[in-house]
Each structure stands twice: as structure tokens, then as C-alpha cells.
Design a protein around this nucleic acid. Sequence first.
RNA 1: GCCCCCGUAGCUCAGUGGAUAGAGCAAUGGAUUCCUAAUCCAUGUGCCGCAGGUCCGAUUCCUGCCGGGGGCACCA
Length: 593
Amino acid sequence: MTFIRLIAQEIAQVIRDRYNIAPEPLKIGTPPNAALGDMAVECFPLAKQLKTAPTVIAAELATHMAASTPPPAGEDRLIEKATAAGPYLNLTLNTRAYFDYTCRRLFTAPPFALDPDAPPPPRVMVEYLSPNTNKPLHLGHLRNGALGMAVANLQTAAGARVTKANLINDRGVHICKSMLAWQRWGKGETPDSRGVKGDAFVGDWYVRFSREAEKDPSLEDGAQAMLRRWEEGDAETRDTWQMMNRWVYAGFAETYAKLGLTFDAVYYESDTYTLGKQMVEDGLARNVFIRDENGNIVFTLPQDRFGLDEKGAPKRITVLRPDGTSLYVTQDIGTTVKKVTEHRLDRCIFVVGSEQQFHFHCLFAILEALGYAWARSCHHLSYGMVYLPEGKMKSREGKVVDADDLVARMTELASEEIRSRDTEAQLSDAEVSERAAKIGTGAIKFYLLRVKPTQDIHFDPKESISFDGFTGPYCQYAYARICGIVLKAREMGVDEAKADHTTLGNDEERLLAGQLVRFPETVRKAAAEHNPSLVATFLFDTAKLFNQFYNRHSVIRADSAACQNDRLSLTAATARVLKKGLHLLNIETLERM
RNA sequence: GCCCCCGUAGCUCAGUGGAUAGAGCAAUGGAUUCCUAAUCCAUGUGCCGCAGGUCCGAUUCCUGCCGGGGGCACCA
């Protein structure tokens, strides 16, 4: 049971005592300043329920609590004092119970510890990244990857059994373009012979194709012809395709490793693109689909959710062409059913940009019409675009922020920063690059996750990404600083296991505890809403509250041994929260910075 | 035309049906004999896009409008 729920429970009991009603779920907030108390109960919902002014209720509850019999000696009540302030009931918590919970029990309840009574965990697939194999990853993929990993981690924390999937778009005319350009102008070069990453190598040929095709439009026909040869299984075409894809995968693997992107299942569109046709045929036989006047098999979109078209007729989408060739949605029908069946999924989360919202609305409506009950728990995690100052990124023109370049640049910046404070040059090159990698990628991931997914991001490469303020490194730094304190304090014999938390209670300590105690609810909410930015802002606030505490109070130089132990205990609890939270965002922690 | 997202401080963004709407950046000044100054403290600005409606109370919910972005299948 989380701390906030314990508080709510205690208040609910008081309300039952006083009014003989079962209150609606209570909202526990924080008073505007620490002097008022640790937590606040809003009495507005009760006012509605009891048909009494909220100010009267707050006052009556405060009086009732003051008059009630204290618990037996040696047993702590959570709420020590309750004061009415207008429509609010402000609570001052029992110091010992408050900090004991914060420091000792925060991770003993869901979402961090399994509830023995919980039903079996749902099986959830998070599908993310979904790169094309004709070019390297760019900033948009970084946002997708950061979101996918964080959402998967949050689902796991919330008790799900998660499978992370990557559906690689390894076929199609865009890949043929890279192949064609390489065949025509590549002179047998390879990534090795040119000394570049395989994905960058293939991407260069894609850009080259686009440039050449502007001068010579017949190249487009050449790419189409190559796609036909690919579909016919032409050996030479397939060989080239496999070789170039292998180069790309080798490049991707390096990028994944740098960013900590991992997958439990990989699907290739070359395997799945013919799926779904049979399901469409079956659906046609069951009248889920109809054949239109042009011979297309079409699906009529439910009017209640999709409205009507400009002519006032129900909207339709084609799910299979007259010649039996499939479409985007055809293969997604097949692929989704395959994934759900293979992994016995209860839910599917698709991390894909907002420009594909219509597609997923259609896909889910079709799956539902086909009779799949799980279709209702499919979710398209739609996120906003990443813009550059000059507008939308365009791979064709090479107008993108390359993922590897950005990682390299941020890592280099971090590295300079580390060296500038390593004045005695004691750090080895290996140590510097290890720290720089964690800080550089941490900055990027935090930057991409700190805004809610629906928000577009305007990325300014000139300003780049900062290490100060609302950033990943700020949170990492607070953690590293704590590690320094813990190390030093332990050397001095300070022992948080001996803490009884009775010496704590100044404003900074209370505010910090009030923050830490809300971590489980924050994680739960972030998981439920698929919104990692809630965790990012929470971590920043936590680090900030810690820094404020740090600035005014010393652990090592505390007045008494008891206080040293208590403060070390609170400090260590903060470290656990920061570490867990950063890991949820797939950001690494460092013990020294 | 229809659908989705966004509109809050100079900039980038949080936020909530309820206490005085907050952070970061940028600017200015200050703090280190002391646990890491990638830190902390102080100083300012807001018709919360506009107009209605619901409500005891709306920046938050509803409707309409304005502005920006994305999408509207037979490309993926």
C-alpha cells in the first residue's frame, strides 16, 4: 500500500466516524507552503456528498481528529495534526512514521514489488523504432526509441509482461533506390572499403539516387523494375538486397548499443508483407468487407467514430487491390494477428508518429470488426514531430539530424566538461569516455522524454542540448553527488541502518520526503497514460529538492551521530528513487561525475 | 471540407475543476576554510489564443471561432 493511500485511508476512517458515510476517493495534495503542513485534503468532493460547505467540513474534521483518542503508547499514528484552512484540511504527519515509510518501505509495494493477490500479469507488446533499411537512424528515431524503451519499462514496472518488438521495413521501392544507385555508381565499394558505418553507407546511396533522379526521372522506373525483380525472387537482386541490408543491420546494432535500445522480438516486413490477404478473404466471405464497383475489397468505417465523407456517404478504405496485391493496412492486419497469436498478447502498444493516426484508427476498427476482442486494447502511442529550425526533416534530401552524429557531438561535449573539471588529469581515457557516453546519451534521452509525447519538439542544433537546468545530467549529477556522500559517510562510520528518523523534520527534509513518497503514484500514472515525461519532471523535481536540502544541511557534519544516520538514510532513499526513475527512462546513472 | 494535436512569461515547455498559475533557458547580483559550484539563493514579466456556456468556482470541462502543425486510403 502506497503512503498516499495509507493517508487517504486514515482520513476516510475519520470521515466514517464523524459522518457515517463512505467518502468518495480523496484527493491528497500538497499545501502551498511547508508551514501549513505536509499534505492537504480537499474537502470539495465531500461538500457535494454531504451537502455542507467545504469550510465547515474541514473545521469539523479537524475538531473531530483533535478530540479522538490517541493510539496506545509506542504506536505511531500517521497524522499527527490536522488544521482546517478554509476548504482544506492540512495534515502534519508524524515525523517518525513519515520518514520511516519514505526511507524503508517505498519499494515494498506495487508498482515496485509484486502484490501477491494481483491477477496474472497481462502480456503486453511494445512495438517501436520500426526503421527502414535504406538510411541511418535520425533524430525522429531517437525520440521513438526513447519513448519505446521508457514505455516498455513503465509497463514492466506496472506489472505487465512486456515484449519489445521491432518491425523492420526491409523491403520496398525505397530500398531498391539505394540498391540501384550503388549498383550504378558504387564501383563495388563497401562500408569497409570506405571506412564508414553500413547504415550511413547505404543512406548515402539513397541520397545519391534522389539527386540523380531529379536530373533523370527514368531512374524511378528503374527502381520500380527492381522491386518487381525482387518480388519475383530474382537471385541477383535478392543477393544485393541481403548484402546491403546486412550492412545496415551492422550499423544499426552499433547505434542500438550506444543508446541501450533492446528488443525481444524482431519482425521483418519481407516476411510479413504477404500476411493478411487470407484474413481479408475470410472477412469478405463473412461480409465484414465488401467488393466495390472497381473490384477493390473495401472496409466501411464505422460512422460513429469516422463520420461521413464530403458526399455524405460512409467512408471506406481499400484493404486489398483487385489484383490481390496487399496494402499497408493489409499487412498490418496480418502482422498484428501474428504477433498477438505468437506471444499470446493481451495488449499491443504501437509507438508510431502522429502522422499515422488515421492508419491505426482504421487498423483497430478492422480488427475489431473481424471479431478480435483484443483489438479494443490496442493502443497507438502517437507522438509529435521533431522539427529542425528549417522545418520538417527530409531524409531524401539528407536534411536530417543523424542519430550517430548527435550522440557523438553530445558525448564529445560531455567529455570536454569532464576533462575541464579533472584538473589533475587523474582520469584515464577509458574512464572519461565511459562517463561521457552515459552523460551525452542521458542528455539526449531526457531532452526527448521531458515533454509529453503529443507535443511537437522544435530542435535547435545551434543551441544543442544543455547539461544545466531541466536536463538528464542535472539528475545524474544529484545522484553522483549522493554516492559521494554515502561513500564518505560510511567511511566515517555513519550507518543508515541505525537511523530511527526522529531527528529529521526541517522544511527541506519534509519537502524531500513528500516528493519521494509520491514516486509510486507517479510511475503508475506514467504507465497508465504512456507518458514518460511525468517521470522526467518528477526526477528533476526530486533532484532539485535534494540539492536544496544539500545546500542547507550537511549529512557528515550533522549535529549528532543520530542525525548523521537519519540524514544518510533519507539521502540514500533519494538515491534509490533517482536511480530507479532514471533507469525507467533508460538513462544510466554514474557514481562519479 | 472533414479528423487529430498544439496555442500558458522574451524563448522552450510543465501544470491543475479549487489556496498567490509554475520550471528551465536567457539577464543582473550574490553564496564555496565545509558532504562534487554540472550546485544553491535573490531580482521580473503572464487578457493561461478569442468569445460564449456549464459550475459555488474554469487556464483546466463543453460549443463556436482564430492561429500553427499533421493526416484524409488504393505509398509504407
